[in-house]
Computed example of a mutant assay.
Amino acid sequence: GMFDVSHMLGLDLQGSGAKAFLRGLIANDVAKLQEAGKALYSCMLNPEGGVIDDLIVYFLSDTEYRIVVNAGTADKDVAWMQERLAASGLEATLTVRRDLAMIAVQGPNARAKTWAALPGTEAASAGLKPFQAAIVGEYFIARTGYTGEDGFELTLPAGEAAATWAALTAAGVAPCGLGARDTLRLEAGMALYGNDMDETVSPLDAGLAWTVDFKDETRDFVGKAALQAQGTRQQTLGLILEDKGVLRSHQPVHTAQGVGETTSGTFSPTLQKSIALARLPLGVAAGDQVEVEIRGKRLKARVVKAPFARHGKALV
């Protein structure tokens, strides 16, 4: 299947100070990126440790990076980056690429279907590992996605989007809506900005501690001091509803350790059960029984570790 994700925004960061700037801007460390095309997922934090946005950075060279940010936060993100860049005094330029479209082709046959639809792309992209990208003519082809499936995210000139979409359709790739994308990402345990984290939520509490790199003690980044002072105050785990009902966001979760809250919820086609991500008190563990309050009723749910499913197979 394919998703039109052109609402997401690409940014190009170029200049001798690009690497140093990103090392101070985001919680993960771009110094880990050594191979051209390699990608890094990270949160961009405010000084209080809350998440301004989650984003992907692609390393092209020490002086050139491609950044992809969320649509709903795009204007805020650009303003924040420009403000931080001006204050840094570093030599770098941020270019907003609203001339680009993005199509995500996802699923077990996604790569083969893409190559069939776009002749000439296979040679450069066949060897891509997950979270790696290649530039093929006007196409930026990344082996990334937001579905828990294999596939590509294609970035291309907006004027080429309709023809590319038609070629993919002719190759047997089915158009999918963003509702399907949301179900897939939740089954895969992937966080959604605005639901699972926002400017009031620390990545340590949102289940994203793995995206925060404290290894280089000499590296400072926005929000680092706040994260170190706060530590982990809550944890994000999965829920599977055992009674009849549908889990949605912002439903109270009653546990032996206190009350938490669902952050994302849906019906899982793979599990044929209702699932959710939830921020819960410390001490709650996978296997625990809890109760989710839905329309005034407490329904039984089981705590699990996400992901719920990957590559079409149930994992819980």
Rank of each mutant, 00 (worst) to 15 (best):
N195R: 14
S268R: 09
T232M: 14
K273I: 00
L208E: 08
A188Q: 02
P203M: 09
R295W: 02
Q230K: 14
A174F: 02
Q230N: 08
I294M: 05
L247K: 06
K297Q: 14
T200I: 00
L282R: 02
A174R: 13
F267P: 00
T236I: 00
S274E: 02
T232E: 14
V201Q: 02
A278I: 08
F221T: 12
Q234T: 15
A276N: 08
G258K: 02
W165R: 14
G296I: 01
K244Q: 13
Q228W: 09
T262M: 07
P175S: 06
R298N: 13
T169Q: 13
L277H: 11
G231H: 09
D243I: 04
E217T: 14
L299Q: 10
S268G: 09
R233E: 10
D288N: 15
G223F: 03
L227P: 01
T218F: 06
M190Q: 11
A256D: 08
D220L: 09
S249N: 08
A170M: 10
D182F: 11
P175V: 08
R219F: 11
A225K: 14
A158L: 11
D220Y: 11
M190E: 02
A276G: 04
G177K: 05
A191E: 08
G287T: 13
Q234W: 12
P157D: 04
Q230G: 07
E217I: 10
G194Q: 05
K300G: 02
K297L: 10
F267G: 01
A167I: 01
P175K: 07
D288P: 03
Q251M: 15
G189I: 01
L156E: 03
A206S: 12
E217K: 14
E199I: 11
A170I: 06
G194I: 07
Q235A: 07
D288W: 07
K244S: 14
E217M: 06
R248K: 14
Q228P: 05
D205Q: 13
P203F: 08
R298P: 00
A162H: 04
L247F: 03
R185S: 05
T183N: 12
A180V: 12
A206R: 00
P175H: 03
G194M: 04
K224V: 02
D205L: 13
A206G: 06
A163E: 15
T266Q: 11
G287E: 11
C176R: 15
V246E: 07
L168F: 06
T211D: 09
G223L: 04
K300Y: 03
K273P: 06
